[in-house]
Amino acid sequence: MKRILVLALRDLRIEFRGRSGLLSALFFLGVVLLILGFALGPEENDLRRAAPGVLWVALAFAGSLLAGRVWAVEVENGTLDDLLLTPGSREWIYWGKFLFLWVLLLLVALVLLFMVAGMFYLPLDRAPGLFLTLILGATGYAAVATFYAGIVVRLSTAQLVLPILVFTVVVPVILAAVRATVGLAEGAAMAEVASWWKFLAAFDLIYLTACSLLFPFVIEG
């Protein structure tokens, strides 16, 4: 557990000092929201109806940028070998990298939530529910993205291949998260929203378990 935290905190420190991944994701989010805002026009009802979709489309694309950062720090510095030569089973490396991406995704999601609320009139009166949806969605996304980023880490085309692999698998998470967000925005009954949360939680559990168990085999050279 200690090594997982050390790895995640170290990567976060490097990311905040380098800033390239986080800044480009935030800049990308700004551009996406601006374009979608212009495309949908000034009508409040149109913007409000599109808000859940905008939130998750923007987060999914920004997430694919951030997913590339999970292993980039090792590739840029040539330190992947050092990580692979640490003692013990390698599942903890997956969990450390997952935690790093999860925190980054949640930070971006939080900024995004307030941007969408401001620009697209996403109601924040059920904010705890929205936070829970973001946490569950980010968990599933990070679980899958960390795993596939590990598979393609040694490929020169990793940045091209990664989004294709991740989006293929992560579609159920995005769809469920959109449905839960729509339910919360439109004031649907809690039972209806909770059914999507259960789906997301089940997906998260299955993918976190499967990915962490398979990870040691895929990261070997």
Binding site: R13, G18, E76, N77, G78, T79, D81
Partner: peptide, 9 residues
């Protein structure tokens, strides 16, 4: 070789 270190640290 060359040595691998995190350059931002």
């Amino acid at each position: 070789n060359p040595p691998a270190f995190y350059r931002h640290l």
